[in-house]
Design a protein around this nucleic acid. Structure first.
Lengths: 205, 205
DNA sequence: TTTACTGTACCGACTGGTCGGCACAGTAAA
DNA sequence: TTTACTGTGCCGACCAGTCGGTACAGTAAA
């Protein structure tokens, strides 16, 4: 009992180094998967460290070992999420002919995919939104960056309108407040696709 | 210390009677105002009963007297919110010439108002969304109802597109993830207005 | 007397985070 | 081959704080 034989605790800590990830990568992934599952099934409000640990078949200590704080976990979750999202969009774009508006079209197509596919994005964003401003800012940054990409080779009007409309549908479905039934939704998706593909006549006459 | 003298825990609870509102209407309003203020200033996560009481210059007991549960408070908040929103839209519509698309135009105009006006909606919605599914369903119901109104006298395409686009801008600004600067936002608003006013040529050729 | 509270004390559940310690793989001297 | 030691990865008990909700005595106006 004299002194403390284990657990160094002498480290200078260095004011948050670039988030050196601890633990086995596989454990981290498992825990992130668990976090997504919990958020989707129980809602963001129930996304607790205990719940993640249980779901991952790990202990709370194990979670804390891999992610020093809950915010670190959310940050990693967000990172993985945006990364996947970006990759998915790029993959779709790669299949499209190389012409102006390709990135915009790919973005729209990626956003309106059948939502019950487990792209997992939903729950986590909610969890993040309801939290630290820092994380929110990351999301905002991602949105800005993405808008730059999709508006790179088309008119502002076209990109902006497609963007707000697509995000509108996506966010409403994320929060389960969309008023559309399946048929209506299909039509909206059709409209969004068309919107991404052609410039409208100048609507502000 | 012997046994447990307090905390009944024997109550049948009676499955929630129709929420008879207690207290003076003015007190209730003050507390709802306080709740909005707290949610806006401290975030939805800090919207606690104690915080509401302090902010309202009341006691916690007083809050509990007026709203038997926190959910009842949120419910009342949501009710007042949607009611105000509806009234604002209707007021705008009343100023508009009576022609097809009037409700749609009014809805768009109401939604894109300068957001730093204290229409208060923001914080509270977040607070509500992050919570019980019951309340979320109310929001969904409001959205459905509103879409019926705005799509009553125009084509589905026009109403649907204006709706998703308007909500997209609104929700992005609500979560502070909009990528637009002031000039860009103004242009987007212009586009939305135009969208609400005229049918597009059939974009799905 | 009733209504509408105030004010305070307290409970129980839950939450993020800490801490001591353990299993085990690797290593390297004996 | 055995023994001793080290660092990593993780467990699980625990802690302090927070929050919703309860209880109840007192009070002041109608």
């Amino acid at each position: 009992m004299s002194a403390k034989p284990t657990t160094a605790a002498l480290k200078p800590v260095a004011a948050k180094p670039p988030q050196a990830p601890r633990g086995r990568p596989s454990s981290r992934e498992t825990m992130l998967d668990a976090a997504v599952a919990v958020a989707l099934e129980q809602g963001a409000g129930k996304l607790t460290l205990d719940a993640v640990a249980r779901r991952a078949g790990a202990s709370k200590g194990g979670v804390m070992y891999n992610f020093p704080t809950k915010e670190a976990l959310l940050e990693a979750l967000l990172e993985r999420l945006t990364s996947h999202n970006r990759q998915a969009s790029e993959a779709i774009a790669a299949e499209l002919p190389d012409q102006p508006g390709r990135a915009l079209k790919a973005y729209v197509m990626n956003s309106v995919r059948d939502p019950d596919e487990d792209d997992r994005v939903s729950g986590a964003l909610v969890a993040v939104v309801n939290g630290s401003p820092e994380l929110l800012q990351r999301v905002a940054g991602y949105f800005s960056q993405r808008f730059e990409i999709i508006s790179g080779d088309v008119s502002f009007d076209r990109a902006a309108l497609a963007h707000v409309a697509t995000e509108g549908l996506w966010l409403m479905e994320l929060f389960q407040i969309s008023p559309f039934n399946a048929v209506q939704r299909a039509r909206v998706v059709q409209l969004l696709s068309a919107l991404a593909e052609q410039d409208l006549p100048d609507v502000t006459a």
